[in-house]
Design a protein around this nucleic acid. Structure first.
Length: 504
RNA sequence: GACCCGGUAGCUCAGUCGGUAGAGCAUGCGGCUUUUAACCGCCAGGUCGUGGGUUCGAUUCCCACCCGGGUCACCA
């Protein structure tokens, strides 16, 4: 696509000049809006003629008939039809009307009435151009078939919709509604945690050491300090420092950054919720996660319903909105899936055979715990549909969790799965500084051996822990993926306003 | 990283078994004072992703690259 002034763009420039010749300022400073589109139906009621309204928004449909013009004005609340009649608005204003384009931002003033076909309409008496659109928005034509909006020649190129999200939003009310729902979801999560006396905090994005997860970081450089800094891969270690300091319940919603591939479930920067609660173990956190998910689902459902977008997405599913969610234990669930009494009693050969049968790649090189993890993913996780807690992971798979009371081979850890995808991960958090140091040192050895995802020893964090860290439960929830799940969205790009993309 | 698919007008797409391309909508002009995918008529609009090769001739065939999508691999 050329950015040069082609004939379409040139036509808009010509109209701009024509408007200026008429003495119309094409870019205004403001407008005293008094109503929104969605109010109009109620204001008119059953009457044929209604009160005056003052509306502002974008011209989203335009049908000129000579000395009469119909248009639709779109604003955040919806859309309403406009009727311009030369006899009503006058010669001068009608001349402006004839220079309107799809996409122009205008303000109108006039009484409501009902057209012959029954549509609530503004009989425009005054028209103000607020911003001339010099580049055509990719509006598709719409028709209503059996109550549903059918869009023709739509703006369908997913790449361009992501790159030019402003245009995507401008022409797709349902995309706006989706992102409103996302904001409502975040708001509901905040309200939920605030209601439990959690404190929302902000911790460093730029960190001298990265940790709290296994991932490759982004590296940047601070000139004045003359040192590299890492963009955080997790919030965990700073939030737990705050619990040491006496903030018993803290949470943060912010971006983490991981220098990995981009696909339908991965964006290099993504929104993570982490929350930590002193004196709570993982069973308490399970209750929190369940209530939080229900609050999030309710908010999404309400927002989509308000926008007229009721769907069969999980946010509308009673099994999601009510709970309690089933809880299954990791080892028994795997044993049952493999039809064996106890998966831990299987020999290495049997495990490998089972893994191979499940389609796992590189079976020969995998350790026992990793084999079992692969089998679990294939046979259990991927088949979980309704939200389900999986609890008590093998110790080898959960280096950051405390051992399970009464069974040190397991850890007090749970993950929440739904539709085969992980929605939350949580532990009874490790608070033993001696154990923690050993784990850091193991990581440091891996890093020294070339593991890019291993972290180093965080001496400052150990110092904090040595002062005495209360026992606590901690949870991480990927907000993008949670929202994808609740709305049934298949691509993370579609739930992030400006996803990371290569420049054009 | 591997493999597969795609990139043609402002938008959505068709097409050329190799002879520099079409449709619908949008745009422009004319008509129309209750239309709603408005309608009727006319006109215009394209370095066919980029670079190279083969060829008398490439948008079409070949190679490389760029961008996007998908599958797989990798992955707290």
């Amino acid at each position: 696509m050329s950015d040069e002034l082609n004939y379409v763009l040139q036509a808009r420039r010509d109209k701009l000049a024509a408007l200026e010749a008429l003495g119309v300022a094409p870019f205004a400073y403001g407008f005293a809006r008094e109503h929104v589109a969605a109010q109009c139906a109620a204001l008119l009621g059953d009457a044929e003629e209604g009160p005056d309204v003052r509306l502002a928004g974008r011209v989203v449909a335009l049908r000129a008939h000579g000395k009469t013009t119909f248009a639709h004005l779109g604003d955040p609340s919806g859309r309403v039809q406009l009727y311009f009649k030369k006899d009503v608005v006058g010669e001068a204003a009608y001349a402006v009307c004839e220079l309107l384009d799809l996409g122009d931002v205008i303000g109108v003033h006039g009484p409501l009435f009902r057209t012959r076909t029954g549509e609530v309409t503004v009989r425009v008496e005054r028209l103000e151009l607020l911003a001339k659109s010099l580049r055509p928005l990719p509006f598709g034509k719409e028709e209503v078939v059996e109550g549903k909006v059918v869009r023709h020649s739509a703006f369908a190129d997913g790449e361009q919709r992501s790159r030019q999200r402003y245009a995507d939003l401008a022409v797709h009310p349902e995309v706006r509604a989706l992102f409103v729902a996302r904001s409502r979801m975040t708001g509901a999560v905040r309200a939920f945690l605030d209601g439990l006396d959690y404190l929302e905090v902000e911790t460093p994005v730029l960190q001298p050491l990265y940790g709290g997860a296994a991932a490759k970081p982004f590296v940047t450089y601070h000139n004045a300090l003359d040192m590299p800094l890492y963009l955080r891969i997790a919030d965990e270690l700073y939030l737990k420092r705050l619990v040491v300091g006496g903030f018993d319940r803290v949470y943060e919603i912010g971006h983490d950054f991981r220098n990995e591939g981009i696909d339908r479930t991965h964006n290099p920067e993504f929104t993570m919720l982490e929350f930590y609660e002193a004196y709570a173990d993982y069973t308490v956190m399970m209750d929190r996660v369940e209530a939080l998910l229900i609050a999030a689902a309710t908010a999404v459902r309400d927002a989509l319903t308000a926008a007229g977008l009721a769907t069969d997405a999980p946010a509308f599913d009673p099994a999601v909105l009510q709970g309690p969610f089933p809880r299954v234990e990791w080892l028994p669930a795997l044993s049952q899936a493999l039809h064996v009494p106890d998966v831990t009693q299987l020999g290495d050969a049997e495990l490998r055979k089972a893994a191979e049968h499940a389609g796992v790649h590189g079976v020969a090189t995998l350790s026992r715990p990793k084999l079992m993890d692969e089998l679990f993913q294939h046979h259990v996780e991927s088949r979980i549909d309704r939200p389900t807690f999986v609890v008590d992971y093998p110790k080898e798979l959960s280096p950051l969790a405390k051992p399970k009371r009464g069974n040190p081979a397991l850890t007090e850890r749970f993950e929440l799965f739904a539709k085969g995808k992980e929605l939350a991960n949580a532990f009874s958090e490790l608070n033993d500084p001696i154990d923690q140091r050993q784990r850091f040192e193991a990581q440091a050895r891996l890093k020294a051996a070339g593991d890019e995802e291993a972290t180093g020893v965080d001496e400052d964090y150990l110092r904090a822990m040595e002062y005495g860290m209360p026992p606590m439960g901690g949870v991480g929830v990927g907000m993008d993926r949670l929202f994808m799940y609740l709305t049934g969205t298949g691509h993370i790009r579609d739930v992030i306003l400006f996803p990371t993309m290569r420049p054009e």
